[in-house]
Design a protein around this nucleic acid. Structure first.
Length: 418
RNA sequence: CGGGGAGUGGCGCAGUCCGGUAGCGCACCGCGUUUGGGACGCGGGGGUCGCAGGUUCAAAUCCUGUCUCCCCGACCA
């Protein structure tokens, strides 16, 4: 992408009404636009990051047998009444609306009910289970108070997977497979070493659910980390009885602040029974379907990554999610410089490398400042100097100083062969 | 929903106490000089001061109501 064609631009100031660092940076760099409290639009660069995170998650969900779907956002109230989750006294963060004829609707905040209901059309035999179904979709939750930029919004992008198993044992096995897949996602995003599987309250279905908590000073949750066992306990279930049950010694736990980047729940047969989804086993007997749900906030992860890796010059994206791998800064507009920069841009692009080509008529300092603020992993400079030296100037976003690199070295560093 | 703070060109702010018809920086447009870490000069364009009432000869400024945003708390992926 040529920056001369990008309609967004960076700003020297941050909006006064944002105090969350992730939102400040993302707005300043032109990745997102705030529509209202807790609701953000994603501009070209932000959309790329969001898509990249979603793609990592998609690959890991596909790897454990997940089938991607896209369920409707508009929800009929009858199926939610069957599970007693329509009443505002039971679920208080619904966004509800009405058809012209007065029929009540809800905007999807989770999708156990509609998916379970739809599966009745397809599942009736033990031969048709288990199934694992997921989607990546905007969720709507009418939070009393949105805050912390992308970390807690009213409209946010989430991956939600639902498992339908024949037995508790079969469910338990997949549950652990899913938990492992979650850790793979965090590792690929560069936060594996600071993310802990965490015991948390399980609601009404089970004693515990499992959260995935990433250490962060801006986190809303307080957790107690056992570094040796690579796990943690959420403050909401932290007491002597629970510690004894988990075999944890209070002295080995350290209190930390963390952001919840995932949450998986065993659901038992609460929803399947209520919505009349059963299967017939090999002896002809009707059996309950055992469910689990697995949530992972894509947009929240984007906010966390923005905040987690940033430095005083701006964003620092992990390569796996960066809107481009290379920021190509062309200094000056001498014909031979333009020619060389254009050629490099074409070569990198042809090799499948995403490049932000800064072909704008700006001073060098502005280009360097933007390269830093946007957080692109590698900056390559083409100028009269580099032309004279017969090499390129290459600087990793996290490096203090640039280095001179031959065309060959450059391609090698960027992982381009041939 | 309880407590606190704030709404003035696209962004950041001053002006409000003490009413007199809106200003600064950035950004934007034109011309010129610049060109390796956010340049400079000159000249321009853009705001009925969140909204609605009220007081007054006169309201960004005073009064009433209302909407929105931010922070703390409670609640939540």
């Amino acid at each position: 992408m040529r920056l001369s064609q990008l309609f967004t631009k960076t700003s020297k100031t941050v909006p006064a009404d944002e105090t969350a660092r992730n939102a400040q940076l993302l707005i300043q760099a032109g990745f997102i636009h705030k529509e209202m409290a807790g609701v953000y639009s994603y501009l070209p660069l932000g959309k790329r990051v969001l898509d990249n995170i979603a793609q990592v998650v998609r690959e890991e969900m596909n790897a454990i047998g997940g089938a991607e779907v896209e369920l409707s956002i508009l929800q009929p109230k009858d199926i939610w009444e069957k599970t007693d989750r329509w009443d505002d006294d039971k679920v208080d963060n619904w966004f509800k609306t009405k058809l012209k004829n007065g029929t009540e609707l809800g905007l999807g905040l989770s999708q156990e009910e509609p998916l379970t209901n739809a599966l009745r059309d397809f599942v009736s035999s033990y031969k048709e289970l288990p199934v694992y179904i997921y989607q990546i979709q905007d969720k709507f939750r009418n939070e009393l108070r949105a805050k912390s930029g992308l970390l807690r919004g009213r409209e946010f992008l989430m991956k939600d997977l639902y498992s339908f198993s024949r037995t508790q044992k079969e469910h338990d096995k997949f549950y652990e497979t899913a938990a492992a897949a979650y850790m793979k996602v965090y590792e690929r995003l560069g936060i594996g070493d600071t993310t802990y599987r965490t015991y948390a309250s399980g609601g009404i279905f089970s004693k515990f659910s499992d959260e995935f908590q990433t250490l962060s000073k801006v986190g809303e949750d307080t957790i107690y980390v056992h570094e040796g066992k690579r796990l943690a306990v959420n403050k909401e279930v932290y007491n002597g009885e629970v510690l004894a049950e988990l075999g944890l010694n209070k002295d080995e736990l350290v209190e930390k602040r963390a952001v919840e980047v995932g949450n998986i729940f065993p659901l038992g047969s609460k929803y399947s029974d209520a919505l009349d989804l059963y299967y017939i086993d090999d002896k002809g007997q009707k059996q309950s379907v055992i469910m689990g749900c697995y949530g992972l906030g894509i947009s929240r992860l984007m906010g966390l990554l923005a905040e987690h890796f940033a430095d005083d010059k701006g964003l620092v994206w992990p390569e796996a999610v960066a809107p481009a791998k290379v920021y190509l800064a062309r200094l000056g507009d001498k014909p031979e410089v333009v020619k060389q920069a254009d050629e490099l841009y074409n070569r990198l692009t042809a090799a499948g490398t995403e490049v932000l080509y800064d072909d704008r008529d700006l001073r060098p300092g502005e280009k360097f400042a933007d390269a830093d603020l946007l957080g692109i992993p590698y900056r390559v400079v083409v100028s009269e100097k580099t032309l004279a030296a017969g090499s390129y100037e290459l600087k990793a976003r996290t490096a203090a100083e640039p280095v001179h690199a031959s065309a060959e070295d450059l391609m090698k560093t960027l992982g381009i062969t041939g």
